[in-house]
Structures are given as structure tokens and as C-alpha cells.
Write a protein that binds this DNA or RNA. Structure first.
Lengths: 107, 107
DNA sequence: TTGATATATGAACATATATTCATATAATAA
DNA sequence: TTATTATATGAATATATGTTCATATATCAA
């Protein structure tokens, strides 16, 4: 077939190295951190743990939006929350730290 | 103010280190690479340069979609195209290589 | 020329999802 | 208890954008 004659990667390793099953989860993570408001929250948590109201005081984001984002980030395993009396301290998980560390290199 | 009393990061370095002007461009890049079809194209180009029809033969993406994505990736400076007769060979730029290299660490 | 291949592009469509709104729960303070 | 603070959550809305469709240009082959 003509097309394959012109193709450089004759063994076509790509689809083996990066099948959909591997690409999709990563794309999901990237989509999660690609939203400015969520990225801001992650950068805040990289500095130190914060409760929702702390995040509010550092940003222009609404309480509701922050809660939603934190829920999403927890579901993805990037963030964990620990109850501290009236507050809930949110912090990066190991996975979250690793990812944010890689992201910061893009700045 | 109450909120600041509870806040761990008293100097509030975050907004200085990561102002919107720095966060937004990165978020834009991340959004670009967070789309599975675009991420697939980048991973293909990481392997070696490809023309549109090569990418088509490696994926299930339509010619039109590939062209649109490549245009977007070029606009962002991640990809460059070089005319080779009837074809156009697309490859990662330096910036593109750097970013894809960091992304691969997330796999 | 004519036909086929390779690619680009603007408009339309479809869909995902960020954000807000209204409201509920839980804990603390008075 | 009541009032206030901290947070969560489902539904509704708003919007961005991925994808397709129709079509145009350019190159090469016959």
C-alpha cells in the first residue's frame, strides 16, 4: 500500500506503545489540570495545605466552584482532604505532587 | 482578618509566583495536549516526522480533523511543517519536543 | 488537459463541561 | 437553642471547542 511505503516508522510501534488504554487516562489528567481555576488550586496546594476558605481568600473563585474542583481532583487522586474541626485541610497526594512537579517545568 | 490568620502561606507568594499572566499560557498548552486525538498526533510526531496521510494511516482520525489539529499545534509553536513535494512533513519543534518529553513522564 | 492525491479552511453541528444557583449538612459560637 | 461559618451537591445554565461537512487549492501522474 502506497501510504505505508512513505511512512518512516515501518514497524508502527506507536500504537503499541501508546494504545488508547494508556493515552486516555493521561489525557483525562491533562484535561483536569488544563483548566486555569483548577490549575490555580493545584499550585496553591503545592505550596501548602489549604482549606476551602483559604483558597477563596487567595483567588477570585467562588466557594461552590472550589468545592466542585476539589471533589474532581480528589476523584482523580490528586488531592486528599483531612477534617480539622470546622475546616477540611486539602493537600496534594503523592500522585498529585508528582504531576504538579512535572507541570511546573512547563512554566 | 480571620482568613489570613488561618492561612499557612502568610507571605502569599503564590499570586506572585503564578500570576494569571503565567498560568494562562500554560493552561492553554495543557488544554491543547489534553485532547486524545491531538495527544495521539503528538506522540506519533515524537517518533518521527509524518505527513497528514501517514497520520491518517496510523489512526482513525479524518484528514480534516488532522489538518485542523496540526494547524492548532503549529499556532502554538509545538509543530512545524515542511513542504516535501506533494506532501508536507510535520515534526515537533524544540518547544514541542520539550513538552512531549515531560508529558511522557506522566504515562 | 484530465483525474487523482494531499492538504487546508470556513461554517455548521454536537457535545462536554466549567460555572453558577439554590439549597442542604455539619460544626462551632453565642 | 439559635445564628453563623465551612463545606458539599444536584440541577440549570452558559460557553467553549472538538468534530464533521462541504469545498477550495496545489501538486503530480497519465
Amino acid at each position: 500500500m502506497f501510504i505505508y511505503q512513505r511512512c518512516d516508522c515501518k514497524e508502527c510501534k506507536i500504537t503499541k506503545n501508546f494504545p488508547d488504554s494508556r493515552v486516555m487516562p493521561v489525557a483525562g489528567l491533562l484535561k483536569l489540570v488544563s483548566v486555569p481555576s483548577r490549575l490555580n488550586i493545584l499550585l496553591l496546594l503545592k505550596q501548602s495545605p489549604h482549606c476551602v476558605c483559604d483558597i477563596q481568600s487567595h483567588t477570585k473563585l467562588s466557594q461552590t466552584l472550589i468545592s466542585h474542583h476539589l471533589a474532581d481532583l480528589m476523584k482523580a487522586g490528586l488531592v486528599a482532604g483531612e477534617k480539622a474541626g470546622k475546616f477540611i485541610e486539602y493537600s496534594l497526594t503523592g500522585k498529585g505532587k508528582k504531576i504538579v512537579a512535572n507541570l511546573v517545568k512547563l512554566f
